[in-house]
Design a binder for these strands. Structure first.
Lengths: 114, 114
DNA sequence: AAAACATATGTTTATTTGTTCATATATTAA
DNA sequence: TTAATATATGAACAAATAAACATATGTTTT
């Protein structure tokens, strides 16, 4: 690595930092994922789904939000593969897609509970 | 729990969902925390700090952002206790405050790598 | 003390985003 | 088929926010 008079860190450090840095696209995707968790309405929906699958209207009523708002946010969660949908007649039941959701939220809780 | 003709879910389910739901303030704090991770600039900064503590200018130069942008985002990270600062003369070295950062980002990576 | 350097702060601007309202689609019931 | 119910979609609006620019604060060097 070429010397850089503007950097204080050692060349070896700079090299390691740059080498370990994931590709821009991955960093962007990661930020996008966390953005999904960065809204209290969506967090509430996920918490509700911790207990059981629920249909859209139940989610809306349980959380005190409109059906439209629930639907919009469920779409965001679904696009990002945090929830999955199951159709039963005119009802659509949403549930968590996998246990990453638990783990990510769990880690977040640990941090704020300090 | 009183019966609710508008809800499809069973009373027992509704009861459990409502019981397990954390207080609104906690849900809000949790969303705020994830919001911090929900920006690629901040994610890049955190990744850089995985390797070693770094001063503001080095972070800016390494990531190709302005000093001002780095400072603003480091402030956000510091307020949310994800990084801590150490002063050495006119340099201020930032580093990760604890290993929750690793864990949270790690879980996020697992999810998107599927 | 003055100059140079490192970081922080305040303001403005452009973009993103969550919600609401109106409406469309789809399924079941009458 | 019409009405009722459940969910989704699209557009408009308001709030949040990241970046840029100018500048202030604090530290070291000369």
């Amino acid at each position: 690595m070429a010397e850089n008079e503007y950097l204080r860190a050692q060349d070896s450090t700079i090299k390691t930092v740059l080498e370990q840095m994931p590709a821009d696209e991955m960093l962007y995707d990661l930020a996008e994922l966390f953005k999904v968790f960065g809204d209290s309405t969506r967090i509430k929906i996920l918490y509700a789904l911790f207990e059981s699958e629920l249909c859209v209207n139940d989610i809306a009523l349980l959380l005190g939000i409109t059906q439209t708002a629930a639907s919009h946010q469920l779409r965001v969660l679904k696009v990002n593969k945090l929830v999955k949908a199951r159709k039963e007649g005119k009802l659509i039941f949403y549930s968590l897609s996998d246990d990453h959701v638990y783990k990510i939220i769990g880690q977040g809780m640990e941090h704020i509970e300090e």
